[in-house]
Every structure is written in structure tokens, then in C-alpha cells.
Design a protein around this nucleic acid. Structure first.
Length: 287
DNA sequence: AACCACGCCAACCGCCACGTT
DNA sequence: TAACGTGGCGGTTGGCGTGGT
């Protein structure tokens, strides 16, 4: 039988997304909502497969994403959740608003794993590591070096260990997954007073990567019934991530590609730019 | 300045689950 | 119930940036 590829891969672009592609994808989703990923590239004028578009949106372009390193609290949460859920990154991500499974997975593999190992904890089982003969030898050699370091004044290793023992113990004491607040769609995008009637909310289907069922249900509705003309330009509070793109880039964007509702797209982005500008100003004031 | 090694992270790939026909 | 289509998930890869030599 053989499985069909998710899309016709011939002639499709791969690799890093360009600003222009991002523009098109964002504008398309702002205009039409998330629907039928397979059709998105065609409709948005992108030479990408639908899967790639979905990944780009959920992992990078979604307006409710937090950027930057995970905070200590978030890290604690990830460790605790991982001990309970294992490598079910999307489930873990659903407990961390604004974080994606990919991001958490990356952070786990690059930071947390190492930390846990340094603490003598198996990152897979969360049990204390049973060192092999080789490890013991290696450890012994390291301890000689470490004690030399300590003599120099900075006891980095023990400091770090102490800190992290603290982390796990506090997590064990205080944490309960049931108590983790889940961000609600309406909490991500705050309607502005100026457009109280705005019914359009992209967050309704993008609250988290685990909300697959809701996303598919919203898809069916937005696919069939929502026309671009019916959509009020959304008024949203864009997170900092959007602002980080820099105004020059935003101002340089144009939305004149063929399929879209050009005026609507323009309105949407004018609004986006304005909000971005506001937040940029706020950032400047902050610094 | 040039080279190399390493770490990080965005993106890809393949499999799976689920819904529809 | 089987076949198929689609979206989602988790593992892996490769490009890029950075620090060291």
C-alpha cells in the first residue's frame, strides 16, 4: 500500500523560513484562522508543505508564545512533569503557557538533562544514577580537579548542586500538576475596548499544542463558515515576542499577494504594527 | 585572523491516533 | 470494517553562533 507523503514534496521549499514567508503565513492565519493545514501553503502562496506551516506557526509565530530561556520555576515544573509523564512533551507543554513542546524538548535535552546528571539523577528515570566502574573512575578524576577548583575559592559545583537539590525538594513538597493553572484562550488575547465586538481570536485554536481536539474543531468551523469579510480585524495584545522583530521589519511588510483579502490583511497588520509600536515604546521606557 | 569544537535550537522526518468515507 | 486523509507527537538532524586555541 505505502503511505502517501503528507504533501507533494516536489518543488517545495525546505529549511529556515524567511521573513517574507512568515508574513504570508501570519497574514493568512490572521485572516482565515487555522484551518486545513494542507491547504494553507497553497492559499497563502507558500512553497511549503502544510506540516511545515503548522510547525512554524505553533513553534514560532503564534502570538501567545513566550520567548527566551525557561525560568527557574518553569524548569522545576518541567522536571516534575517529566518525572510523571515521561517524554510526552506536548502534555508537559500544556502545563506551561506560552511554551511549545519543541522548546521544552530542546531545553530538556540541552540543559536539564545535564543538570540532572550532574546532580547524580538519571534524567530518564529520575532515580539516582548507579555509577558504572568507568563512571566511578571518571568521577574520581574529576573530584581531584574539582577539589583543586574549590581551593581556589569558587565552589561552583557544590553551589550548583545545593541549588538544584533545593529545586527538586521544593518541587516535591509543593507541586501538584492539578494545581497548574491552564491559560485560557480568552486570557491570551485581550479584546480592546475600541473593538468590543471583535469575535475573531486566533488563540481559540492555538492555546497550546496539546489542544489538538479544540484546534481541529475550530478548524472545521473556521474552514467552512468564517469568511474573511466577516471577520472583524482582531484587536489583540501581542506579546513581546512579536515586538522583538523590530519595527523596521514590520514597517517594511507589505501584503499585496494575490489570493488574500488585501485590505483586510493590511488592516490587520496596521493594527499589529500599532500594537507592536506601543509595546516597543513601553520597552524603551523600561530601559 | 583563521580554524576548530561545541552547544543551541529551528526545522524535518516518520510514525501514530483519530476522524471520515 | 477497511482504507484513506489529516493533524499531532517525539526523535533526530543540520545550520549557525560562540568561545577557545
Amino acid at each position: 500500500m505505502g503511505r502517501q507523503p503528507c504533501c507533494d514534496k516536489v518543488g517545495l521549499k525546505k529549511g529556515p523560513w524567511t521573513a517574507e514567508e512568515d508574513k504570508r503565513l501570519i497574514n493568512f492565519i490572521l485572516t482565515n484562522g487555522q484551518c486545513c493545514w494542507r491547504a494553507v501553503p497553497k492559499l497563502a502562496g507558500l512553497l511549503r508543505c502544510g506540516k511545515s506551516c503548522r510547525l512554524r506557526w505553533t513553534n514560532y509565530l503564534r502570538p501567545d508564545l513566550k520567548r527566551g530561556l525557561l525560568s527557574e520555576a518553569e524548569e522545576k515544573l518541567v522536571i516534575e512533569l517529566h518525572s510523571k509523564l515521561g517524554n510526552r512533551w506536548s502534555k508537559i507543554a500544556s502545563h506551561l503557557p506560552g511554551r511549545t513542546d519543541n522548546e521544552i524538548k530542546n531545553h530538556w535535552n540541552t540543559h536539564i538533562k545535564k543538570k540532572l546528571r550532574r546532580m547524580g539523577i538519571d534524567p530518564l528515570t529520575h532515580e539516582p544514577l548507579i555509577p558504572s566502574a568507568n563512571d566511578l573512575l571518571h568521577q574520581e578524576q574529576q573530584q581531584v580537579g574539582a577539589s583543586a577548583d574549590r581551593r581556589e575559592g569558587n565552589d561552583k559545583v557544590s553551589e550548583e548542586q545545593g541549588e538544584e537539590e533545593n529545586i527538586t525538594s521544593t518541587v516535591d513538597d509543593a507541586f501538584c500538576t492539578d494545581e497548574v493553572p491552564m491559560i485560557q484562550p480568552h486570557e491570551m488575547i485581550v479584546p480592546c475596548a475600541s473593538t468590543p465586538s471583535a469575535s475573531f481570536s486566533i488563540s481559540s485554536s492555538s492555546s497550546s499544542s496539546s489542544s489538538s481536539s479544540s484546534s481541529s474543531s475550530s478548524c472545521s468551523s473556521s474552514c467552512s463558515s468564517v469568511k474573511a469579510q466577516e471577520i472583524q480585524p482582531p484587536c489583540m495584545e501581542w506579546p513581546e515576542s512579536v515586538c522583538l522583530w523590530g519595527l523596521d521589519e514590520l514597517n517594511g511588510w507589505d501584503f499585496n499577494y494575490a489570493q488574500g483579502d488585501e485590505q483586510l490583511g493590511l488592516d490587520l497588520f496596521t493594527q499589529w504594527q500599532r500594537t507592536a509600536l506601543d509595546q516597543e515604546t513601553w520597552k524603551f521606557e523600561l530601559f
